[in-house]
Amino acid sequence: VLVGAVAVAIGFRSTDATALEWLAAFGLLVLFATALTWIAVGMGMVSPNAEAAGNNAMPMILLPLLSSAFVPVDAMPGWFQPVAEYQPFTPAIETLRGLLLGTEIGHNGWLALAWCLGLAVLGYFWSAAKFNRDPK
C-alpha cells in the first residue's frame, strides 16, 4: 500500500485499467506477498537464532533486481535471459504491467498464479513440518 501510494504521489496513473483489473492486480499482490511470507517463515524456522532468521531471507531481496522490473528480458545478455525469465518476479511484474498499463499479459498471468500457489504451498508445508518436528 505504501509503495502504491508513493507511486501515485510521484505521478503513476493507470488510465486504461478498469476496476476489475485493479482488483486483480491487488489480488495478485496479496497472493504474491503471502507466498513469499510462507517461504520466509520456512527460512526462519530452519534458522538457529533470530539473527540468522532475519538474514536467511535476504537473497529474496535480489530477485526483483534479477527480473524484468527494471530492464526488459529481451535487452539482457543472452546467458542471463533464462535466469530473469524463469523466476517468480518476472511473470508477476509482467502481469501487473498488463493489468494496470494495458500491455499484453500472455501466459504470464498463469505463470504468476502458478508461482504464487506453488511457493505458498511449499512454504506452508515446509514451515508446518519444521514446526511440528521441533520440540518446544
Rank of each mutant, 00 (worst) to 15 (best):
V73K: 05
S67N: 09
A50E: 12
S67A: 10
A57H: 06
L101E: 09
F89T: 09
T95S: 11
S47N: 04
Q81N: 07
W79K: 15
D74M: 04
P59Y: 09
W79S: 14
V73N: 05
L96S: 01
A57G: 13
S47H: 01
A50S: 14
A84Q: 03
E85A: 15
M58P: 02
N55P: 00
M43E: 04
P64C: 05
V73D: 05
A92Y: 00
S47D: 01
A40N: 13
A75Q: 13
A75F: 06
M43I: 03
M45G: 02
T103A: 10
W38C: 06
E85D: 14
P72G: 10
G42I: 00
R97C: 06
G42R: 01
F89H: 08
A50P: 00
L63H: 07
E94F: 11
W79G: 14
R97S: 13
F80S: 14
V71A: 11
G78Q: 15
G44H: 00
A53N: 03
M60S: 14
M76D: 08
W79Q: 13
P82W: 04
A40T: 15
P77N: 13
T95A: 06
V46N: 03
A69K: 10
E51Y: 07
T37S: 15
A92C: 13
E94W: 07
T37V: 10
